[in-house]
Structure formats: structure tokens, C-alpha cells
């Protein structure tokens, strides 16, 4: 269990905390009066994303060890999270189906030392875009699913496996059915890889049918989306729905639309891992909010 004071201590070590309102509320009702009095439903989770295992190049000369260092840093958090979400691009793409599977298995071995064993993975297009998610499903698991944790409903949306990096009508129908079982004020967290909204379409920072998912989510009053893909922290609102992107664990990309090309920011040998990291997200039962703290790959 983590309380606000402990959390702020962690946040102070790792960087700024971001407050995103609108998640908790129903958790109290679900937990019951006794649990409410004891603050039962407070918890936090970690988001990791975009490690691109298998990438080699000048944008990260430390690619062989970056993910391993991030794993060690997560393991050294004073209070371990309840679980981890991993929002895609576990591996860097390859045309070779054998190599793709090899990279996914190597990735599995690298994250195996994580103390937290409850890890929810979703694919990025680098993992699943060229084979419809076949290798990912074979080695990692399903590409879309939902689960509940301490009164919060989590929905993992796959927006990379289908042609054109769409969600697709069958999955949208599944999403609609899943949501139909939730109260309108249910705290809902969506995890996905690409932004569901048009962030920078000319950089392919969008989901072609993401507006359909947002339309399905819009009637629900407590929805927050965590995603990856753009290799940096970004915060955006579509109506009352907050969207938070995570940093990468391989190389940072330029600010949305800030330059002509979306080329990786050059590696700075004086500041290794600059712009990289992971985040922790705290769901508090008391204050109807999530708090986000950003972490570097290595904490010194």
C-alpha cells in the first residue's frame, strides 16, 4: 500500500508528478464501507513502453543495456507497484518471422527479473504490424483484453495488428460489449499503443479509426488513456478523456509537429538516456485522481 506521503517521496526522486483528474469514485462503492474507511483501493502501477529490443544504431549506442537498466531501476523502487503495463513496441521490427520471435523471447528474458510478475503487455506495430500479431500472440499473449484491479476497469486496445494500424470493427464491437457492462461513472483506464486521437497524422501519430473508440468511451465519465508510440511524455484531452503518452526506452522523438521529419533525437553522450524513462501512476481512492511520476532509465 502506498500513501500520498510515500508517493511524493518517490516522485521527488524521479521527477515531476502529473495530476489527472477523474478516475476514482466507484472504487469506493465497490470496496464497501469498511474498505473505504481503511483506504483499501489506493494503488499504483508502472507504465513502460517502446523498448524496441533488437534496434541497433546511433540513436542509442547503449541499446544492449538500456532495457536491462530500466528493469533494475523498477526493481529498486522503494515500494513495488501492483502491476506493470507495457504499451507496445517491445521489440524493433524485422521482416524475418524467426528473428521476430527470437527478439520477443529475448525481451521476455530481459524483463523476467522484474520483481513484479503481473505485467500486462500490448503490442506496437513493430511487434505485430507485419504478421497480424501472430508472433506476439504466440509468445507474449493476447493483443486486446480487459481486467479489473481494485475497482478500476482496465481495457487494452490493440491498434497495431490490423492492416493500416486500425482497431477494426470486430474489436470495436468487443469494446462496446465490454463497456456495456460498466457503470457510466466506472473508473476506466485504457491502455493502447498509438494515440487514439489525431496527434500528428503526417507523422503517423494517429489511429485511423480511433475516433470510433473515443465515441464509445465518451459516455463514460471517468476515462483515462495511457499510450506509447511517440517516445515522449504528452498530455491531451478529447473532451473529458485524458490521454497520456509515455517516454520510450530506446530513443526520444521530437515534440509533436515541431519539425519536418519525425527523426529520432540524436544521442547525447554527455547525458545518456536523456529523454528516456518510464512512469508510475497512482490511483488514489480518496481524491478522484491519478498521479503520474516520470522516471529516467537510471536513477543516480
Amino acid at each position: 500500500m502506498i500513501d500520498r506521503r510515500s508517493f511524493m517521496k518517490l516522485a521527488a526522486l524521479g521527477g515531476g508528478a502529473v495530476f489527472a483528474s477523474g478516475l476514482i469514485g466507484r472504487a469506493q462503492a465497490a470496496a464497501g464501507k469498511a474498505a473505504r474507511l481503511s483506504g483499501y483501493s489506493d494503488f499504483y502501477f508502472v507504465q513502460m513502453s517502446d523498448s524496441h529490443w533488437g534496434y541497433t544504431g546511433p540513436d542509442n549506442p547503449n541499446a544492449e543495456i538500456t532495457l536491462k537498466e530500466a528493469v533494475a531501476t523498477v526493481n529498486n523502487l522503494e515500494i513495488q507497484p501492483d502491476f506493470i503495463i507495457y504499451t507496445g513496441d517491445l521489440t524493433h521490427t524485422t521482416d524475418d518471422p524467426v528473428e521476430r520471435r527470437q527478439r520477443l523471447r529475448e525481451f521476455q528474458e530481459i524483463v523476467r527479473p522484474l520483481k513484479v510478475r503481473d505485467i500486462h503487455f500490448i503490442p506496437g506495430e513493430h511487434d505485430a504490424g507485419l504478421d497480424g500479431g501472430a508472433a506476439f500472440k504466440e509468445i507474449i499473449g493476447p493483443t486486446h483484453y480487459s481486467f479489473d484491479h481494485k475497482g478500476v476497469h482496465f481495457i487494452a486496445i490493440d491498434n497495431v495488428s490490423q492492416p493500416g494500424s486500425t482497431i477494426g470493427d470486430p474489436q470495436l464491437a468487443w469494446l462496446k460489449a465490454d463497456l456495456s457492462r460498466q457503470a457510466k461513472d466506472q473508473p476506466i483506464v485504457v491502455i493502447t499503443h498509438r494515440p487514439l486521437f489525431d496527434l500528428v497524422p503526417k507523422w503517423d501519430w494517429a489511429t485511423r479509426d480511433g475516433d470510433k473508440a473515443i465515441a464509445l468511451l465518451m459516455p463514460y465519465t471517468n476515462v483515462t488513456v495511457f499510450y506509447g508510440h511517440i517516445h515522449q511524455e504528452n498530455h491531451h484531452m478529447t473532451g473529458h478523456i485524458a490521454h497520456h503518452s509515455a517516454k520510450s526506452l530506446i530513443f526520444p522523438l521530437p515534440a509533436p509537429g515541431s519539425q519536418d521529419k519525425r527523426e529520432a533525437l540524436p544521442w547525447d553522450p554527455t547525458m545518456p538516456y536523456k529523454g528516456l524513462g518510464f512512469r508510475e501512476v497512482e490511483a488514489e481512492n480518496k481524491a478522484s485522481e491519478y498521479k503520474i511520476a516520470e522516471y529516467p532509465v537510471v536513477r543516480r
Binding site: H92, T93, T94, D95, E125, G129, L130, V160, P163, G164, S165, P201, K202, W203, D204, R208, K261, R262, E263
Partner: peptide, 17 residues
């Protein structure tokens, strides 16, 4: 007017525009 390939096509997809 910028255009791009928006069907993920491999390791150079992000530069195909």
C-alpha cells in the same frame, strides 16, 4: 501538402513520406 505511407511496412516505414 505532406503525404505519407500510413500502413506499417517495416523498419523504414517512419521515413516513408
Amino acid at each position: 501538402y505532406d503525404f505519407l505511407c500510413d500502413n506499417f511496412c517495416g523498419a523504414g516505414h517512419e521515413q516513408m513520406n
